[in-house]
Design a protein around this nucleic acid. Structure first.
Lengths: 110, 110
DNA sequence: GGAACATCTGAACAGATGAACAGGGATGAC
DNA sequence: GTCATCCCTGTTCATCTGTTCAGATGTTCC
């Protein structure tokens, strides 16, 4: 049975939206940085060497899509990947591209 | 151990590129349509009710990124998802959004 | 060789996107 | 109350993207 029959047009758009949020390198870095543990905005900005304003901008999108959860601790706001499915998927994909390096060397197939 | 330490900047960009390809609803529909079995371009266009030209354009991108494999049979070209990791991930995500519908009804929270 | 079919390619345009800048809250220390 | 720190929001602009249209390429059959 085909996969498309299992979801409707709205679900496709919803899924595409998730991918879209993760499709920007900067945004993906932000997600990855907050994959394992909650991190404050300032720390993300410093780690990735980009402005806090830009980080906040992306965080806003990620938060709206429920990809990241926000938690206030004093005057800092910590962000972390909230959905375990997403976290699991991301971890798999990271392994995929990491292993892909080795595979590429074994089978260059130009 | 953090996940970001396991991959470099190049891998992040590579991963983001994959997500980018899957982030467009039309393109995602095309991928989903060729997820289980090879399908010719014309059939994809007809199923999705879009022009063959547009399908071909997207197919070119998907093919270049190794997300889809092309196979010529006579005067038709069949496309199918080539990587099992990607196929598995896609199936999971489809289930995720499909189940998400039910969860949303149970816990609207928002 | 010619016709019909399926797919691919290039140019152009409307709409979306990311980045940078400036200003506005919220919080905590004094 | 005042100040500094941290984060959020709105706007503008250059760039990118998806889409359509027109025409080319490749394949099969006669």
């Amino acid at each position: 049975m085909g996969v498309r029959e299992r979801i409707g047009e709205d679900q496709v758009v919803e899924l595409a939206e998730m991918f879209r949020l993760m499709s920007d390198p900067t945004r993906l870095r932000i997600i990855l940085a907050s994959l394992d543990a909650p991190v404050p905005v300032g720390e993300v900005a410093e780690k990735l060497n980009i402005s806090a304003s830009l980080v906040s901008h992306h965080l806003r999108l990620l938060r709206a899509a429920r990809l990241l959860q926000a938690e206030r601790r004093g005057r800092q706001v910590f962000y972390v990947v909230g959905d375990s499915h997403i976290r699991s998927m991301l971890t798999d994909m990271v392994d995929h591209v990491a292993e892909g390096e080795a595979e590429a060397e074994a089978a260059p197939g130009g």
